[in-house]
Structure formats: structure tokens, C-alpha cells
């Protein structure tokens, strides 16, 4: 993984560290002695817990990344953003409907969007965040879903937005409405739920529970991921 011998300098919250080149920000921080308790989760780029802001020496750009994905660069100034202060909006998905003003009703601050595109520049998932916020503003639920599908709610867009919008919450509402009212129930899911209820997988689960950890790890590592 790391190239023999080559070291780079990074600054974690202002403190200088020499770390092997080739490490991710997360591993480099652990190498430097940090014990991560917040700001870490899946370590695989899916959970969004490891949001990080950084600048690299010589560049004015304030950049955003996932610490578990981004490889350190020489002269990186790093700060983790393990949490985005954002209010959890409450709504009852059974009661709200996919109306054109549904986004404005729950997130009226989207009317402050400047189309500055700062959110898109921040998104480590390379989503067109500005475009989905704008689609939400005009009530285009399908477009929001299409553009935000890979959002992992890392919160980086919300930290950077000058209009104080929390884009990922808007996108989440869109996906919820979409699945509930537009897509409808999927046959496969219904079938699988029935199978689970009938106890089709009970035995397999019991077997798994009894496996020793090494065997579990082996199976996990050799698992097949189907997309």
C-alpha cells in the first residue's frame, strides 16, 4: 500500500505530522496517533461519517473529502467535520404528499439558494448538488432523486452553503416521497419480506451466529457484491 520510505507532511488541526505517503487521511491520522471515535464509520466510503475539509500548501482552494477515501498529499492542512449541525425535520411520510411545494414547505431556506455551486464543489460523491437543490425548488421530485441517488449524507455541502441550506435533507425527503408515492411497492421487496416472515432464512442466520470470528471474516472478505 504505502511506497517504501516515502513520507509526507500533513497538519492535523494545525499540528505537524510526518506520515507515509499513500495512506488515506484516516489511516494517516491513526498512524500519527489519533484515536478516532467520531468521524469514522464504515471505512469504505459509504456511511458519510468521515467528512473532512483540507487545503494543500500553495493553493487557495478549500477542498472537501471523505477521510477514508482521500489519500494524503504533502502539505495538507486537515480538519475533520464529524458532525453537521442540522435540525432533524419531522414529517409523517404517510401524511405528506408529493406536491410541488412540498420542499419549500419543509425546507423554506432552499428559496435562498444562490446557484453558487459551492455545494457541488464540496461533494465528495461528485453529485450535482446545486442542480438537485434547484430541482427541489421547482418541485421536480424525480430529478432530485436522480441527481442525489449516491448521497451519503456526509454534510459537507451543508457546511459550505452560504445560503445555510442542508441539501442532503432535502434530497432525503425527495427519495422518501419518491419511493412511497411514485415508485410504489416493489414486487421483489414484498416477496423477500414474506420469505423473511415465513422463516426462510432463520436456519442460515443461526448457522452464521455459531461461526467462529475467523471464519466469519473469511466469508465477509470473499463475499460477492451484486449491483
Amino acid at each position: 500500500m504505502e511506497k517504501e520510505g516515502k513520507m509526507v507532511t500533513i497538519y492535523v488541526m494545525g499540528k505537524k505530522h510526518r506520515v507515509p505517503a499513500g495512506l488515506t487521511i484516516m489511516k494517516a491520522m491513526e498512524y500519527a496517533g489519533y484515536q478516532l471515535r467520531r468521524g469514522v464509520g464504515c471505512r469504505g466510503g459509504f456511511c458519510g461519517a468521515c467528512a473532512t475539509l483540507y487545503r494543500v500548501k500553495g493553493s487557495y482552494k478549500l477542498q472537501a473529502a471523505l477521510a477514508c477515501q482521500k489519500v494524503v498529499e504533502d502539505g495538507m492542512y486537515i480538519v475533520q467535520i464529524p458532525f453537521t449541525p442540522a435540525e432533524k425535520k419531522l414529517y409523517d411520510i404517510e401524511k405528506i404528499r408529493p406536491t410541488p411545494n412540498v420542499f419549500v414547505e419543509h425546507f423554506p431556506e432552499i428559496t435562498r439558494c444562490l446557484s453558487c455551486n459551492t455545494c457541488t464543489k464540496a461533494c465528495p460523491q461528485d453529485l450535482m448538488v446545486m442542480d438537485y437543490v434547484q430541482a427541489a425548488l421547482r418541485g421536480d421530485i424525480e430529478k432530485v432523486v436522480e441527481l442525489s441517488f449516491d448521497c451519503i449524507a456526509c454534510g459537507l455541502c451543508a457546511i459550505r452553503c452560504p445560503a445555510e441550506i442542508v441539501p442532503y435533507q432535502v434530497a432525503q425527503l425527495a427519495r422518501r416521497l419518491y419511493s412511497k408515492y411514485i415508485l410504489g411497492l416493489s414486487e421483489e421487496v414484498e416477496k423477500r419480506v414474506a420469505e423473511v416472515e415465513e422463516g426462510k432464512f432463520d436456519e442460515e442466520l443461526e448457522q452464521l451466529k455459531r461461526l467462529p470470528p475467523e471464519e466469519l471474516r473469511k466469508r465477509y472478505e470473499s463475499r460477492e457484491i451484486r449491483v
Binding site: 411545494n101 414547505e105 423554506p108 431556506e109 428559496t111 435562498r112
Partner: peptide
Amino acid sequence: SIDLLPPEELRELPQIALVSCQRKLT
């Protein structure tokens, strides 16, 4: 403060009113 608008108003008001109001008064 747009936080103070009741949901009935937000459901009814067109985007054009809310956007311009935000730009002018916040």
C-alpha cells in the same frame, strides 16, 4: 425570518415570492 412562516402559507406562496423576499430582506 422564513422559519416563522406557518406551513399553510408555505404551501400556498409561490417560489417567486419567497425567493425575492429572501433576497431583499435577509
